[in-house]
Simulated scan of single mutants.
Amino acid sequence: MALAYQRQLDGMTAFAVWKIEEEAEDLYSRLQLNQEEKAYVESLNNGKRNLHWLSTRVLLREMLNTSGYIDCRVDEHGKPYLVNFPHQISLSHSFDYAAVMISENKPVGIDIELVKEKIVRIEDKFLCPEELMFIDPSHRIEHLYICWCAKEAIYKLQGKRNVSFKDHIRLHPFSFRQEGEFSARLDAGPLQATFTVGYERFEDYMIGYVPGK
């Protein structure tokens, strides 16, 4: 596993992307796991799912720069959190890469996705008509992935189920660029917030990230 990219957003918030190059056994050997975690890993079939789970935990260990045990759990909504560190975290993975975002003072969300043409088949499933209107036709695939990653990152940050990408997360219009930021709004009943979404192209992938407030 090799660090491919790291970005410090402020003094307390950062994210990193690692390329998954090791076998599962190598990643496993770098972790300290309790019995429940070991049983979970053993329940996964050998393949990408196993590598993704292990690689995000190895990258988390690297970012926290610790040799001690990291008690990383998920709540009833599936959102990961740390028991024995003050940081808030978000985890993502796609094909050959894992991504982790951490912050000492705010909630965070991150998503990484391999850019593929098939996203056009589901564009109206996660974007409303007003959002589809600002998609740049000359960069449609990439622009759609920016929108998807943004909504996924916001979904992960807020951490509650039953939030609809299309109905509850709205992106303010923005022009396509390879890297930038724009505003978005979460409007899901008691969940109300405005976010600044950052994004950038990384090789054949798109990264979207959201630091909370």
Rank of each mutant, 00 (worst) to 15 (best):
M1S: 14
L3S: 08
L3H: 03
Y5W: 12
Q8S: 15
D10L: 12
M12H: 15
T13Y: 11
F15M: 10
F15R: 05
K19T: 09
K19N: 07
E23I: 10
A24C: 11
E25V: 08
R30P: 09
L33W: 03
L33I: 03
Q35I: 00
K38P: 02
Y40F: 07
S43P: 09
L44M: 07
N45V: 09
N46S: 12
G47S: 04
G47T: 05
L51C: 02
W53E: 00
L54F: 09
L59F: 03
E62M: 12
L64T: 12
T66I: 02
T66N: 06
G68E: 14
V74M: 01
E76Q: 10
E76H: 07
K79Y: 08
P80W: 03
N84S: 04
Q88S: 15
L91Y: 03
H93E: 03
S94F: 04
S94A: 12
S94H: 09
S94W: 02
F95W: 07
Y97N: 03
Y97A: 01
I102C: 10
P107I: 11
V108F: 07
V108I: 14
D111R: 11
I112M: 03
L114E: 06
V115K: 13
E117G: 14
R121I: 06
R121Q: 15
R121M: 11
I122E: 13
E123R: 15
D124S: 15
K125R: 15
F126S: 12
L127K: 13
E130K: 14
L132N: 14
L132R: 14
P137H: 07
P137S: 12
P137E: 05
I141V: 14
E142N: 13
Y145Q: 09
Y145L: 03
Y145I: 08
C147E: 08
C149P: 05
A150R: 01
K151Y: 09
K151V: 04
I154K: 06
I154N: 05
Y155I: 01
K156Y: 07
Q158H: 11
G159S: 08
K160H: 14
R161Y: 06
D167V: 01
I169Y: 05
R170H: 13
R170E: 04
P173M: 04
P173L: 04
P173E: 04
P173V: 03
R177L: 00
E179P: 02
F182H: 11
A188S: 15
G189C: 13
G189I: 10
L191H: 11
T194H: 13
T194R: 11
T196D: 05
R201E: 00
E203M: 01
D204F: 01
Y205L: 00
M206S: 10
I207M: 01
G212H: 06
